[in-house]
Structures are given as structure tokens and as C-alpha cells.
């Protein structure tokens, strides 16, 4: 299935449903957000994603369920590319928070977990420094999915906010998964360097 075919299918489905046209990704956007073994650079995103508001466009692609799921995931992960030196409360930061909020806490499907993991990973990269972000992530240390717990530990490490140390230690005490314990250990080790 080519990128052009994917784009056409989006349009046909939306039209058939009589909905407001979704943010149908262009062929170039599909190519940009479907690479197998690389992530798009900021230059590539700025060249091939419809502008001028790249963040709004990526957010629209990320949040529209009619868009191919692989495209959604990569759009989420691409949002931090548009962070300036300080990303706190900027549109990419707000968009990432919106992605995390869009995942119902009751949805434990594989795709929901993958979307949540993408949002958590992106929030770690945003590195806003805000306590609210740490507080948003900490509950995910108790998520049923060990992939989510491990991703959360990594994101808290990436945020480099030492307020995460206490909840990470607390989780470590009763964490059963070796994968997550190792992720928490690595996070605690790196957070010690963040002061």
C-alpha cells in the first residue's frame, strides 16, 4: 500500500461518512511520518508538513482517529522537534499534554497504550521543568502495563526534575518487573546529577 493510496483512503472514508473533512495527510506528510528506520528531522518536518503552524498540524494528525495509527504515533513523537530552547507552556508542550489527556484511563487496548507511551516519551523530551508535568506522569508508574511504567521512568529521567526521585524510589520498592526496576534505577542515577 503506497502513501498515495493511504491518503486517498482517508478522503474517501471521511466523505462517505459525511463528516467534517479530517486532517487528511498529504502524500508528503505520509512519507515524512512513515519512515521505517529513522525519525524525521525538524528540517524535514518543516519542509513537508503543511505549515505555517506545524505544531497545530502535527497535533491535528496526532489526535484524529481517522488518520493512520502509525502516522498518529510519529506525529506525537515529532511534536517536541518544534520546541525552542525553552519549551515550557509553548504550543508543542501543550499539544503533548493534550495527547496524553486524550487517552481514556479506561482504555487498555494495545493502541491506547502505544499512544500513551508516545505521549509520555514526548513529554520527557519536552523537558518543561514544570512540577505539574512530573505530577502528571507519576501516576503512570503504577500503570498495569510494564511498558508504560518503564517509559514513565525514562521520561521522568529525561525531565531532570528531582521531585521525581521520591515517587520513583517508592515505586522501586514494590516493582516486580526487572525491566521497570532497571529503568527506575537508571532514572534515579541520572536524576542525582540534575541538581
Amino acid at each position: 500500500m503506497t502513501g498515495k493510496t493511504v491518503a486517498i483512503i482517508f478522503v474517501i472514508c471521511a466523505t462517505a461518512r459525511g463528516e467534517t473533512p479530517p486532517p487528511t495527510p498529504t502524500e508528503l506528510e505520509i512519507h515524512t511520518l512513515s519512515a521505517i528506520d529513522s525519525v524525521p528531522t525538524k528540517d524535514e518536518l518543516a519542509t513537508y508538513v503543511q505549515g505555517p503552524d506545524f505544531v497545530a498540524r502535527l497535533e491535528a494528525l496526532a489526535l484524529d482517529s481517522t488518520v493512520d495509527f502509525g502516522i498518529q504515533l510519529r506525529a506525537i513523537r515529532a511534536l517536541p522537534s518544534f520546541c525552542a530552547a525553552q519549551c515550557k507552556d509553548t504550543p508543542p508542550h501543550i499539544a503533548v499534554l493534550a495527547v496524553i489527556a486524550s487517552v481514556p484511563s479506561t482504555d487498555h487496548s494495545g493502541r491506547a497504550l502505544l499512544r500513551l507511551r508516545a505521549g509520555i516519551e514526548a513529554l520527557g523530551i519536552v523537558k518543561s521543568g514544570k512540577l505539574e508535568d512530573v505530577n502528571l506522569l507519576v501516576p503512570f508508574l503504577d500503570n498495569a502495563s510494564r511498558d508504560i511504567r518503564a517509559a514513565t521512568a525514562r521520561a521522568l529521567r529525561d525531565m531532570c526534575n528531582t521531585t521525581a526521585i521520591v515517587p520513583l524510589r517508592a515505586r522501586y520498592q514494590h516493582e516486580m518487573s526487572a525491566q521497570v526496576r532497571l529503568a527506575i534505577s537508571a532514572a534515579l542515577r541520572d536524576l542525582d546529577q540534575c541538581n
Partner: peptide
């Protein structure tokens, strides 16, 4: 592997 990060990356080598 279970997961590959960055999210969206499907293969690496």
C-alpha cells in the same frame, strides 16, 4: 524487542 524508542521507529540496524 517489546518496544523500540523513539516511538514510531519500527526497525533499526
Amino acid at each position: 524487542v517489546r518496544t523500540l524508542s523513539p516511538v514510531g521507529l519500527q526497525a533499526f540496524g
